[in-house]
């Protein structure tokens, strides 16, 4: 079995005053390469912490985490940064584009940190933007783009580094329903093209676009179900266009 994510007994606690909060209580989760997993749960369930752990933005107190076969425990900050850069593409709810840079430059950013030359960087960024239908908007600043367009740029940025894993945290949370559907369709397409996708949401309707839904509550996985049928078909029904 070729696994992209292998989480074993991940524990994460936070100290708030004298109180110890158990955010993740021994979570184990495996995600296969090419899969599309939605992690759902109410706020405070620990799904954001889980997503941060998977995204290597936060380090668990105990447990092991293998990403694309690489053991991430005891890695240095720099090692984690390099792994994030090479293996993970983030899609955030708030897009998290740098406001002073143009769309094109935002897409180039991860490639700057992986040391790709200026010319190749620009070419690749243009190709990805083109693929997402944003080729014409490369020279616009994020503030000159609509929410949906900004999220497309953010997805382009996530794709540009050719990551093994796409990590989407409430990607439609700041978008209206029509744009949400478009962005979701885009994510489904990316999965069909072979990208492994982990999507975090509190909205079951959005989660239903995935192949597999993992529900987390009070820091524990309470259900893990695989959906029937290709996600693209179900999406077509939902958007009906």
């Amino acid at each position: 079995m070729d696994n992209m994510i292998e989480l074993e007994h991940i524990v994460k606690t936070y100290q708030r005053g004298a109180e110890t909060l158990h955010i993740l209580k021994s979570v184990s989760l495996t995600v296969a390469r090419g899969d599309f997993v939605a992690i759902v749960g109410p706020s405070g369930s620990g799904k954001s912490t889980l997503m941060n752990t998977i995204g290597l933005l936060d380090v668990p107190d105990s447990g092991t985490y293998r990403l694309d076969g690489v053991l991430t425990s005891n890695m240095s900050d720099n090692g984690l940064a390099e792994l994030r850069n090479r293996k993970i593409g983030f899609i955030f709810q708030q897009f998290n584009l740098l406001p002073r840079l143009t769309a094109l430059e935002n897409v180039e950013l991860p490639m700057i940190y992986s040391g790709i030359g200026k010319k190749e960087r620009r070419e690749r960024a243009l190709v990805v933007l083109e693929r997402l239908g944003m080729g014409e908007r490369g020279h616009h600043k994020p503030s000159e783009l609509s929410g949906g367009q900004q999220q497309r740029v953010a997805i382009a940025r996530a794709l540009a580094g050719n990551p093994s894993l796409m990590l989407a945290d409430e990607p439609t949370g700041a978008l209206d329903s029509k744009t949400s559907a478009e962005v979701l369709e885009l994510i489904v397409q990316l999965n069909r093209q072979g990208n492994t996708i982990v999507l975090i949401t509190h909205d079951m309707h959005i989660a239903e676009n995935a192949r597999r839904i993992v529900t987390i509550r009070d820091g524990e996985i309470v259900s893990d179900e695989r959906l029937d049928g290709a996600p693209s078909e179900r999406l077509t029904e939902a958007v009906s266009r």
């Binding site: 900050d77 390099e82 994030r84 090479r86 998290n96 740098l98």
Partner: peptide, 16 residues
């Protein structure tokens, strides 16, 4: 701070 967070999340190292 947010910009620093974004840059770090997409792979900026401490040195960068």
């Amino acid at each position: 701070t947010r910009e620093i967070g974004i840059r770090k999340s997409i792979g900026a190292k401490r040195r960068n």
